[in-house]
């Protein structure tokens, strides 16, 4: 029971971490609070569903299509919708409000398109649904794969952002956007890259989620909410924070569901969120301000 819960929690947590990393990059570097993030994930879920059931493509291969497409589409969304807002915003606060409003609209557009295309029912497909014995507990192989993928992508990204020149550029923009141009960084390009990267991560998360769980066109909001909580938990713009926060959230949720009541998982998440807001509003890994 305990190991079972632990593994379920880690699988869910890995997904949350992936989801939150995309959001935290977009928020930390591009300064866009993207409320349509969860719906991007669900769109990717449906994409890999189509690739699997129509073209017989395994989700692993689907990643190679869906993730680049996610990057390109997010890049386009940034150029068309976000860039004008960034250009006209007099300060960071105004951009936050505008981006929240506009992505709130985007949320309804994506959801509406998915509803028209796929209807409102739960969808899913069976991939690697073979039982695996792990420490005496039976776990579906697709869940283990999901956890593995989440960790590989997450850790690779943290490594890339902390060790490469490209990653340093992005982090510089996140920490001091007003100083970055002084050292020759094109903020606009960095912001667009970060937004597109966030979209690619959402696409990755979508494919991973679709491997082991069913989904509907309308549950994107739930992913966004959890990602937001993880971002606050881990600190704005912190990938390590998002990874640890995501795993933590997955564990807390699963343990509350297993030992207290499955109907109270969201309440538990919110309780953590509130406590954190009151005690440490900058998150565990965030800088002040």
């Amino acid at each position: 029971m305990l190991i079972d819960t632990l593994i379920t929690g880690l699988v869910a947590g890995g997904t949350y971490a992936l989801v939150a990393m995309g959001l935290t990059i977009q928020f930390g570097i591009s300064r866009i609070m993207n409320l349509a993030h969860g719906d991007t994930i669900i769109a990717a879920c449906f994409a890999s569903f189509v690739l699997f059931s129509v073209f017989g493509l395994s989700p692993i291969l689907a990643l190679m299509i869906v993730v680049p497409v996610g990057y390109v589409l997010s890049d386009a969304v940034y150029r068309i919708i976000m860039r004008p807002l960034v250009a006209r915003a007099p300060n960071a606060g105004a951009l936050e409000v505008d981006s929240i409003l506009v992505t709130f609209g985007l949320l309804f557009v994506i959801q509406g398109v998915l509803l028209v295309a796929f209807g409102g029912n739960y969808t899913g497909y069976a991939f690697l649904n073979t039982p695996v014995d792990l420490f005496g507990t039976i776990v579906a192989a697709n869940r283990l794969l999901a956890l593995l993928l989440a960790l590989v992508f997450g850790i690779t990204l943290i490594f890339v952002l902390s060790r490469t020149r490209w990653g340093m550029t992005l982090r510089a923009v996140s920490i001091a956007p007003e100083n970055a141009p002084l050292v020759g960084i094109d903020i606009n390009r960095a912001a667009r890259t970060a937004f597109a990267l966030g979209g690619a991560l959402a696409a990755t998360a979508g494919v991973v989620v679709s491997m082991y769980q069913t989904f509907t066109a309308t549950i994107g909001v739930i992913f966004t909410m959890k990602a937001l909580i993880v971002v606050i938990l881990g600190g704005k713009g912190s990938l390590t924070g998002a990874l640890i926060g995501g795993l933590l959230l997955g564990l807390v949720e699963t343990f509350v569901a297993a030992y207290i009541d499955p109907g109270l998982t969201l309440a538990a998440t919110y309780a953590i969120f509130l406590l954190l807001l009151i005690l440490r509003p900058t998150g565990f890994f965030g800088q002040a301000g």
């Binding site: 409320l35 936050e96 409000v97 909001v221 966004t224 909410m225 606050i232 109270l264 969201l266 309440a267």
Partner: peptide, 24 residues
């Protein structure tokens, strides 16, 4: 008391939270 963004995020999920609590 906190920056506006936290307020937005919190209110974003408040309806869902209350709905789940009432359902529970």
């Amino acid at each position: 008391r906190l920056a506006g963004i936290y307020f937005v995020i919190f209110t974003f999920g408040l309806a869902e939270l209350i709905r789940q609590l009432v359902t529970w």
